[in-house]
Design a protein around this nucleic acid. Structure first.
Lengths: 221, 221
DNA sequence: GTCTATATACAGATAGAC
DNA sequence: GTCTATCTGTATATAGAC
């Protein structure tokens, strides 16, 4: 049996297999709906051996969530710093989010739905990360309103509405659906500009097609 | 002790207390995160007595979900039948949904997040109801596109995006927030029209302020 | 690093007295 | 309609041999 010896680059370590199969079960049946025996079976281990690869079930969940949110936050911050045009920045943040939530669906479902399974210091850490990411969205919307490009009475509410809309992609996206992934990203960023009533200086609607954006998967953490 | 004898109209029966406190616990800790003993304690009963008021935990969850979705579906269908203008119909459906999800937050959270706790015939029933409700949203969006009022490449995706956006309200709304409930409803319906690029015959943007809508709580099941 | 065996607590649900 | 007492299964986690 291989353990951690060098292998081909796409070989999965036991540790990675534990995390990946846990994501699948948590996404399907929920954190509390998945037992230690389920996790062990899914990873092809006994429960005792499973505990060699994780401290406990709670910490495994926290790691899954932090691994999902932290790269999103880093990318969004980088986008906001890089692009002075608020419309470009917001559209790019939306597209990156949609791209990530369609590409890594199950981890995003777990992250989005199992926060309430945590408590104490674990909950605090995940919430802080989540709030920080939401804060980037709010700053992006607020910047567009300050610049007179977006028009919305409640920037915080608008940011949350768009974030929740884009997060929902993880619950239904399929590569075999009517929209390809890059089309889906454009659809959501264009819709977000519409939601925010983005306008050009002449007052006409500013659309996604008017913008030059980096590829949605350009900002990989 | 009162049981089912007549009392003042706002007296809560034991049965209603069981359902209400179950909604609170399920919304807070999740279905699998809430034990029978938690439910009994929350309702001020022993576990045995709790079983006098419900068949089992699964059926209690199904009842909570059906009680939340069925009125939404009925209202949306009635709105769609009543209003020939697709912009009015869609905006009204959005406002009713937001109003319900802000007014009855906890039941909507449970309904939105615990579908995966069900299986078999229970899952089938709830999914059928949910799909039927989503279908009304899709028909509303499609009607607007056919009429040349909305402009979106993927009506099904747009409907789901708007539905998920509006559903998110249940996760954060507070009556003490920056927007009052009726303002929130208008904010979301206006945003939805923007997302769908609603246009007047002259090509200018069609906004919520251009429409005459019934009150968001007009369609009560 | 993997196993068998097990500790301890709690899950959902019921029996049967009053 | 409410209770005490309890059944049976499963939960998370660990001990200690190999």
């Amino acid at each position: 049996m291989r353990t951690q010896k060098a292998g081909k680059a796409n070989d999965e370590t036991t540790r990675q297999r534990v995390v990946r199969s846990a994501i699948e079960r948590f996404a399907d049946k929920g954190f509390h709906g998945t037992g230690i025996r389920d996790l062990a079976e899914a990873a092809g281990l006994t429960t005792s051996t499973l505990y060699h690869y994780m401290a406990n079930k709670d910490d495994l969940l926290v790691e899954i969530m932090e691994s999902a949110i932290a790269p999103l936050k880093r990318a969004a911050e980088q986008i906001l710093e890089t692009h002075p045009d608020p419309a470009v920045a917001l559209a790019s943040i939306v597209e990156h989010h949609v791209w990530a939530h369609a590409s890594d669906r199950l981890a995003c479902i777990v992250t989005d739905t199992e926060v309430r399974a945590l408590s104490g210091e674990r909950l605090d850490r995940v919430m802080a990360l989540r709030d920080a990411y939401e804060g980037v969205w709010k700053r992006a919307v607020a910047a567009g309103i300050s610049a007179g490009i977006f028009h919305a009475d409640a920037p915080g509410v608008a940011a949350r509405a768009l974030l929740q809309m884009a997060t929902g992609v993880s619950h239904w996206f399929s590569p075999s659906g009517s929209l390809k992934l890059d089309e889906l990203c454009r659809f959501y960023s264009d819709g977000a500009l519409g939601f925010l009533k983005a306008r050009k200086p002449d007052g006409s609607a500013l659309e996604r097609a008017d913008l030059e954006l980096p590829a949605p998967n350009h900002y990989l953490g």
